[in-house]
């Protein structure tokens, strides 16, 4: 049994402690918003916040999350609310297939939490570990800058 907090709720995970956190989230916890992209921590699709920092959940064993705070795309904002980044992504229609977006929004939320006033360069740098294949990069950058404007208000 591994104790951890997921999206603000204390949880007990029964999976083997060596199980990738991604499989625990998508499997026994039913939180399928976090994506499997490569399993090699090379694309960012599986990013979650671990104590506020974006990590690749595909290569993070459950044991590493013991006693720590995990936030997934489902928990970026409370209840049915959307995080400013999520709202801005919709406003800018910054998506095509949308598969990379969970990890991208997790990276962006972490950036805005530590730097509410990022410039474009900082946004690009914060998202550079996330891959997108449909080519919505510039829309995403615009959306994150827009969300930053909202966060400050």
């Amino acid at each position: 049994m591994t104790r951890l907090t997921v999206n603000g709720t204390p949880m007990e995970a029964v999976s083997d402690p060596g199980t990738p956190l991604l499989d625990v989230l998508r499997g026994e916890m039913g939180l399928t918003g976090t994506r499997f992209g490569c399993g090699l921590e090379a694309c960012g699709a599986c990013f979650v916040l671990l104590d506020g920092r974006p990590v690749a959940s595909c290569t993070t064993p459950l044991s590493v999350a013991e006693g720590r705070d995990v936030v997934t795309i489902e928990g970026l904002a409370p209840g049915d609310e959307l995080h400013p980044v999520q709202r801005a992504i919709l406003d800018e229609q910054a998506g095509q297939c949308g598969f990379c977006l969970s990890g991208i929004m997790v990276s962006a939320a972490a950036l805005l939490a530590r730097d509410p006033h990022p410039d474009e360069e900082a946004v690009v740098a914060a998202l550079d570990r996330n891959l997108c294949r449909c080519g919505v990069h510039r829309r995403v950058v615009r959306a994150v800058l827009k969300a930053a404007g909202e966060v400050t208000r």
């Binding site: 399928t32 959307l82 999520q86 919709l90 998506g95 949308g98 598969f99 977006l101």
Partner: peptide, 21 residues
């Protein structure tokens, strides 16, 4: 018109075949 499928994807709701259970 905004994309009809994006709200689910942005909220992380099950929508992809990978999420099928």
């Amino acid at each position: 018109v905004p994309r009809l499928d994006l709200p689910d994807k942005v909220a992380g709701r099950p929508r992809f075949i990978h999420d099928l259970r």
